[in-house]
Design a protein around this nucleic acid. Sequence first.
DNA 1: AATTATTTGTGCGTATGTATC
DNA 2: AGATACATACGCACAAATAAT
Lengths: 364, 364
Amino acid sequence: MQKNDNKAKYYKLMEYLKDEILMSRIKPGEQVPSENSLAEEFLLSRHTVRKAISMLVNEGYLYTEHGKGTYCTDWNRKRTNSKNIGVITTYISEYIFPKVVTGIEQVLSDNGYSIFLKNTNNNPLKEALYLEDLLENNIAGLIIEPSKSALFSNNLQYFKALDGHNIPYVFIHGYHQKLEATSYVMLDDAAGMYKAVEYLIKLGHKRIAGIFKGDDMQGLNRHKGYAQALFDGRLLYNPDDVVWFSTEDKDTKPTEVIRQFMEEKRGIDSVVCYNDDIAFRVFELLTGMSIKVPEDISLIGFDDSYLSANSSVKITSVSHPKEKLGEIAAQILLQMLKDSNYLKNPIQNVITPGLVIKESCIQR
Amino acid sequence: MQKNDNKAKYYKLMEYLKDEILMSRIKPGEQVPSENSLAEEFLLSRHTVRKAISMLVNEGYLYTEHGKGTYCTDWNRKRTNSKNIGVITTYISEYIFPKVVTGIEQVLSDNGYSIFLKNTNNNPLKEALYLEDLLENNIAGLIIEPSKSALFSNNLQYFKALDGHNIPYVFIHGYHQKLEATSYVMLDDAAGMYKAVEYLIKLGHKRIAGIFKGDDMQGLNRHKGYAQALFDGRLLYNPDDVVWFSTEDKDTKPTEVIRQFMEEKRGIDSVVCYNDDIAFRVFELLTGMSIKVPEDISLIGFDDSYLSANSSVKITSVSHPKEKLGEIAAQILLQMLKDSNYLKNPIQNVITPGLVIKESCIQR
DNA sequence: AATTATTTGTGCGTATGTATC
DNA sequence: AGATACATACGCACAAATAAT
């Protein structure tokens, strides 16, 4: 112990003990000397020793067992006492997200956890805000759909902080590229889109336009599958037939460009879309232009959502597991919470979607 | 302060002081009596008083200033810019609740709020735990489906604490009886069940069994509508034809008693159920006993959920607005957050449900 | 099965230090 | 300077839980 500072005796003892713990001279689970023996050793009253110990108990370094002794906390597992899980998604109440979130809730609340729901609207600044927020609140774990996962993220520091605090996190739909080993559950977006395009080619389509989102990983991968399927089907990949949009112009650009394509009569016979939301908008656009689906143009969406089932012509779409995806993410997180080894050995789950054939494509 | 529990003195004092704070008898910023005067007042040693106070300081209820005094923490300030809303429901991911929660999320996240989701499993002790939890986190408001709303609640103190901190809250589905003026949105459960029974009477049914939940307000009101409809239809109300169950025995008692009814062949020609969950179980029971719905027994559920649509014979049910109910609750809360006058003038919204006629009832 | 030693938990008394008004 | 309030510190006694004898 130190020489004479002007610090209080209990405070110096507390610092000494904390140091012993941090330097692993007192190891997790190990018993610390009894109050009486510490008092004797450091020539203090038991009361003073108790004060020092109670501070460390409050900070979580130690815990006491009545009649047995005082022990060093194994704070790799310490987070267990928080039963709050942060869930950050791009959207919550729209599209397929309610179902994904329901799947997460199902599993987590069955296991006694509460959920802190936040949506970023795909805005990395909001993501940063919420990550900071959740770090301050004391959460046991995090499930996150990254915002703009294709772009470089400034939020990596927060994930490193989570690593530092041994707070496990699971990505869904995509993950920030720069993180080396992370747990995630996502779709094989390329394979899904490949199936859609392959199907159109089999039906005899020659000019397949594609609409893709440029600022998330899903969009890039779906585009990859599109290009690969064209190549394998011996069709030319024509950059001019591809529409790229982003979060900011998603409500206007896809339909505007497709309208232009149609007005130019450049001979497109089908369109594959980033998701059902876009597909549904394109369907409405085409209907408004008196272009018939599927007679004039075949159309395929992605995610097999209610949007592809509600239109007057049901839109063929690539499946999305929705609740199942949420459940898997939650189960992965639970495993990581149970066994801290999983923090080092990430669990990665890729689901291969299938094509759900409805009414929006016909043989050419 | 209380009488003699076997709790420790310091603990009882701590609870007493915490209660004073939660009930706003000690207001934020206000100075609490000095250690010596508390010791004198409660005939305790100063040391014991200090122990109680130090716990409350640790939990953040109080803070001390050396040489000046001990003060009540003002967590109002922090709350003002909080964009977090607590949502406590009995269940989250089952039955109609995902839709209700989705409605809440829709409105709140559109207005920039995050949601803290907790489910009580209809256990008032968990409700208490979560209410305390949310009071310590800084939430801007609360939407709550009360647990066991028919029974006397020990959790009223927390709602008074919310009042004291100007945190608005909205009840859904029911409300704790003892609170005088609260905002809520709920169904006219009596009217809904009345319509169901009236419909059965019109179809010529004479012996209508009823299954009701005894520990929430909805159950009592649905029973009320049942009894009133029988009376108006000049049928005898027979207590032996009524099954009461509670949260704890919901999975066993309703079907067991109905099985007994059937084995006794007491001439029941129809069953109205507290909700679709019960109705679905009864349907499966009857089918298992080779009793046909609706040929032998007519059956009506409540909530118009997927359960009443998924069975082989679609079950006639009383409608429930689900998302709409969630949206209304969220909108009420937003109004209360915007205009603090609403805290004094509660907004109460009662939705009258209708009967959704499907396939489970026929003319006798 | 009862006893005993050890350890933490509760509670009181006292004295002194130090910051605030 | 003095009164008041919280902070530190020591000592003592007994209660309650635990583990070993």
